[in-house]
């Protein structure tokens, strides 16, 4: 874990993202940003701060509340040679523009027989911070189900900037899921890599990270849950439980090799996902593991996700349905006591 007092740039996630967007827009005049309140406001979470004053209204455009149409505009812009970044303020609003995402953005490269590229980033804020049923959803599992979309879900502060830079440079469409908690969390309170170099850099899309090496249990997770997992692992280490943590970083492409290597070693797998449980990330990871490793050679496979219920408003209720520090810790202790 980093010595966080020595961090000289105490950025939060949104500043790291804004810096990536700013630098990429500086390097390529075809890159433009559209969305609600991305202009003078700089994004409701601040993830496009400074861009409007630097690049002007043509390239950083506040859109009316017409998500279906401005997402479709991204398709026409891309075909005309631009590289649009489309902000959908909350992941919950993806439903409004999903048609253009999964029928156009995700399919046009394929439907055109490879002739047309869709260099589009759809960035959106996901995750639970007490915002109830319509402003808390993750939905990355839903989007990962649809072909033709790269699904990027950063966790460390370093990755927020580096993965956003990669997403913008990608010639394939990327759905970029920020987590509201991480957008607002500052470097000094991050447990995973909090250092954000000032110069430009990229983190490759499709390679998982291993923020903690361990030998007893493999904990596979993503986004804010990586922070929770690190804190839980630190606690259970005091009881002699040695957890290896894998931060997936992207769901599509999925770096299953890194997961398999770890599970072969620990023989215990726990998947933690802040998204809904059924038909989602945890089911996919576990399936790919048992397709590749003889299940009889594994000691335990568990998952911990939102039990297929809308996110309640009252925090007393939210706490029992969304994986948290205590619930993850308890799962780890229970697994360590088992086979």
């Amino acid at each position: 874990m980093a010595n966080n007092d020595k961090i000289d740039r105490n950025l939060n996630g949104s500043e790291a993202i804004a810096e990536a967007i700013f630098q990429e827009m500086q390097q390529d005049e075809n890159t433009i940003l559209i969305g609600e309140d991305v202009g003078k406001c700089g994004g409701v979470f601040g993830a496009s701060r400074n861009c409007f004053s630097e690049f002007g209204e043509n390239r950083v455009r506040d859109m009316p509340i017409s998500e279906m149409t401005f997402t479709g505009m991204g398709v026409g812009m891309a075909m005309s040679g631009l590289r649009p970044i489309i902000e959908i303020m909350f992941a919950d609003f993806l439903g409004v523009c999903l048609e253009q995402i999964y029928n156009a953005i995700g399919k046009i490269h394929y439907m055109s027989g490879g002739a047309v590229k869709m260099p589009i980033v759809v960035k959106t804020a996901a995750g639970n911070i007490g915002s109830a049923a319509q402003h808390s959803q993750c939905l990355w599992g839903t989007l990962a189900h649809l072909p033709g979309l790269k699904i990027v879900v950063p966790s460390s502060l370093y990755d927020h900037k580096g993965l956003m830079a990669s997403a913008i440079r990608s010639n394939d469409p990327v759905i970029f899921f920020e987590h509201k908690e991480l957008l607002l969390k500052r470097a000094r309170s991050f447990l995973s890599n909090p250092i954000v170099p000032q110069n430009t850099y990229t983190v490759p899309i499709g390679k998982a990270a291993k923020p903690r090496i361990g030998s007893d249990i493999t904990l596979v997770t993503l986004s804010y849950s990586v922070e929770l997992a690190l804190k839980s692992a630190y606690e259970v280490a005091k009881e002699g439980i040695d957890v290896e943590i894998i931060d997936l970083r992207s769901l599509v492409p999925l770096d299953i090799e890194t997961v398999l290597q770890s599970v072969r070693k620990t023989q215990r797998l726990l998947v933690v996902d802040e998204d809904y449980q059924s038909f989602g990330v945890s089911g996919e990871i576990i399936t790919r593991v048992v397709e590749n490793i003889d299940p009889t050679s594994l000691r335990q496979i568990k998952r911990h996700a939102v039990p297929d219920v809308p996110i309640p408003a009252a925090l007393s209720l939210e706490q029992v349905v969304v994986p948290n520090y205590d619930s993850i810790k308890n799962m780890l202790i229970m697994m360590a006591k088992g086979p």
Partner: peptide, 13 residues
Amino acid sequence: QSLPVALGYAYAF
């Protein structure tokens, strides 16, 4: 869904 895509072209032009 043709109209938003055409609009994107128009914006770029």
